[in-house]
Design a protein around this nucleic acid. Structure first.
Lengths: 183, 183
DNA sequence: CCTAGTTGTAATTGACTGATAACAAGCTTC
DNA sequence: GAAGCTTGTTATCAGTCAATTACAACTAGG
């Protein structure tokens, strides 16, 4: 193909990882082929495998970066204002890149795979603790915050929320409870 | 194999469907093999396909029965007492059979597949409306109810909730907010 | 420049897997 | 009791897909 650019393995790895987040977010762990990721990243399928060892390790790497991004977003939001409302605003930013949160959802779904479950439990626990620590919220308040986040994520997966959303009465009704009409 | 019993296609279909709920609940749509379902149901893999046409149609049938069960549980709970708290109690009963709600979660995750997304959106919307109708709850109250349900389902997927749960501090803390300690 | 390490690909493979086809064994109805 | 429908299996295929191997092209250090 045209203008080939040679990158270091680390740089190329990052590009592949970005592609992996997109692909896994769209189709899940089992449903995504390493070949799709390779084409998205503009490299060959075997190279994807060589860079990350196995498909599973690549998926885990994707989950890790996504969680890093989520935590960083929450930390930034807390720095502006250490309240759950502020973190909620940060969550909305995260929803703009739909795939991010969907990767995490697919991580939950794939928790049956022991290696994946271990990572997902660890990281979700970390997010829970982070939210509590930076906002000082009670467990019950934090639970409600995370609950809402889960519903939003699931609705995003159903494609009734977000940029390319399908508009449905029930979804609009639910969505309206989150963005109260500005009178 | 030993004592073979002949059933009508409808009866055998129900058994296969039960097996499919177990299997899909554990491993998701793409991650489950029709052969596993067949072995769980005690029939051959080709017969599973013949009974349901394709793996996708079998998955959709599993989603449909699961949603039927959920709706029936909510209707029964509302008959006892038409409040969200009562439905919440019903939800706890549903969580006892872990796979039920996990099938729905996997349905959300597989919404990228158009045929699956259509069914999942339709059924989830139906559940939302049912909850509102039988309890008279506001959209905001219903959203909070469903949000909590989503978090519980996700925690169940992570295996930090339910019968075979892995005990973790953060999970216990979250769980405690739902079952306040009986003083 | 030339050798050694690094980046990348083409070719292939072996296991898996959903689906089909052909066939066998039971039931039912006349 | 035999013809015809239903239930179920075995055998097999055609496609898919992660992973391996071997090789090619580039680059840096001496």
């Amino acid at each position: 193909m045209g203008a080939r650019v040679r990158l270091t393995a680390a740089e190329r790895g990052e590009e592949v990882l970005r592609a992996a987040v997109q692909a896994f977010g769209a189709s899940g762990y089992a449903g995504t082929k390493t070949d799709e990721i390779a084409r998205l990243a503009g490299v060959s399928q075997p190279y994807v495998i060589r860079l990350f060892g196995t498909k599973q390790q690549l998926f885990l790497a994707a989950v890790q970066t996504v969680c890093d991004t989520i935590e960083q977003t929450f930390r930034d939001a807390a720095e502006r204002e250490p309240t759950l409302a502020s973190l909620g605003h940060g969550y909305n930013e995260l929803m703009a890149e739909r795939e991010l949160l969907l990767v995490l959802l697919h991580g939950f779904s794939a928790s049956g795979e022991p290696a994946i479950g271990d990572v997902v439990r660890e990281r979700f626990g970390g997010i829970y603790r982070l939210v509590r620590d930076v906002t000082g919220a009670s467990p019950a308040e934090t639970r409600e915050f995370l609950s809402t986040g889960m519903l939003l994520t699931v609705m995003s997966a159903m494609q009734v929320l977000g940029p390319d959303a399908i508009s449905l009465p029930w979804a609009d009704e639910l969505n309206a409870t989150l963005h109260p009409p500005v009178d």
